[in-house]
């Protein structure tokens, strides 16, 4: 282990939630490492546990949740933080942007109140300084007429603009890590590009680390350094973003890539994965993907694979791909 711990280390994280009164595993084993200033994508379909994993970073889990493993921020365990420390951690060191900004802003108060309150209440900034600072950040995220926008209420803003406001709110806290949970899923593609550009610029200007939660592998590969793929509550593969298309080792990663219809490759066949994505509590004894996997063998059904090195990736698979994918990238 190196002398300085990474900014975020999620190590063997498991989360049980009560379902019908019984604790059931939703996340089995999540491993994520984010070095200072790096961007890591957590990619998965519904039930993969990616959002819950992100919430565990903030210590924001539903009542009755049981945690095992560890989440450490700069070497400090989040689970071990005292309430006052946890409050300061959430207010100043990490910030989160959600898929649906409208659900995370008080509709009765103006955008300005929302932005300024975050600074004056939790960080003790003087009101006048807060206004100056917030105005500057709004300009930075592409909201030129900041004074007018701050007087408006959330419902007067489009989804894209409101998401910029949420990003401004996140940046205003000067965090070291930004958690973005599907921040562009509800937006149009052209707006998505704007919002992702804004996040990328802010990261560069501030050396901000990013944990980007998404279902979109292509988008993840375009804006992040490393990709972590989750399936049915476990991280199944971790690899450099640049290797995604040619050198993904886990069959799920490759299947997910080839099931996405490509805009750019004519004639590329659309490969669908049979079955449906499972939730963590539904997985069988062996590999969670075994029912849908084209490379499944007997061992996969009886023994759950542990993460191990496969080329540049770490993959939880007994029989990972070792040969590069074909040039088209869509033929797994």
């Amino acid at each position: 282990m190196s002398a300085t711990p990474p900014l975020l280390r999620i190590d063997g994280l498991g989360i049980d939630l009560p379902l019908d009164g019984e604790p059931r595993p939703i996340v089995h084993r999540a491993d994520v490492v984010i070095p200072e200033g790096a961007a890591v994508a957590l990619v998965g379909e519904s039930g993969s546990g990616k959002s819950l994993t992100a919430r565990a970073v903030l210590g924001l889990l539903p009542a009755g949740a049981r945690l095992h493993g560890d989440v450490a921020f700069a070497g400090e365990s989040v689970a071990g933080m005292a309430p006052e420390r946890l409050r300061r951690f959430r207010a100043g060191e990490v910030a989160m942007v959600f898929q649906d900004p409208r659900a995370h802003i008080n509709p009765a108060r103006s955008v300005g109140d929302f932005l300024i309150e975050g600074l004056t209440l939790t960080r003790g900034v003087r009101a006048a300084d807060a206004v100056r600072k917030v105005t500057g950040i709004l300009r930075e995220v592409g909201i030129a007429d900041a004074e007018r926008r701050m007087r408006q209420r959330p419902h007067e803003l489009s989804g894209g603009l409101l998401q910029r406001v949420m990003i401004a709110a996140a940046l205003a806290a000067e965090p070291r890590l930004l958690l973005a949970d599907e921040p562009t899923t509800a937006l149009d593609v052209t707006t998505q590009e704007e919002v992702m550009a804004i996040i990328a610029e802010a990261r560069e200007a501030r050396g901000l680390a990013l944990l980007f939660i998404t279902h979109d592998l292509e988008l993840a590969a375009a804006v992040c350094d490393r990709i972590v793929v989750m399936y049915a509550g476990s991280t199944v593969e971790e690899l450099p973003a640049g290797h995604l298309r040619e050198r993904a080792a886990h069959p799920y990663t490759r299947a997910l890539l080839s099931s996405r219809p490509s805009v750019f490759e004519a004639g590329a066949d659309l490969r669908s994965i049979p079955g449906r994505p499972l939730s963590g509590f539904e997985v069988p004894d062996g590999c969670a993907f075994s029912d849908r996997c084209p490379r499944v063998r007997d061992r996969c059904r009886s023994e759950r694979p542990a993460p191990s090195a496969a080329g540049d990736s770490t993959a939880a698979c007994h029989f990972p791909y070792t040969a590069p994918a074909e040039e088209a990238g869509c033929h797994a």
């Binding site: 592409g142 909201i143 030129a144 603009l161 593609v189 052209t190 998505q192 590009e193 704007e194 992702m196 550009a197 804004i198 990328a200 610029e201 979109d216 292509e218 988008l219 590969a221 375009a222 804006v223 298309r245 805009v263 750019f264 990238g329």
Partner: peptide, 18 residues
């Protein structure tokens, strides 16, 4: 606007349009 390998998101909207 569609992400693909090598794609870098850019702001294309000028502030006046925003």
């Amino acid at each position: 606007s569609v992400p693909k390998p090598g794609w870098i998101p850019r702001r294309r909207m000028d502030p006046a349009a925003a």
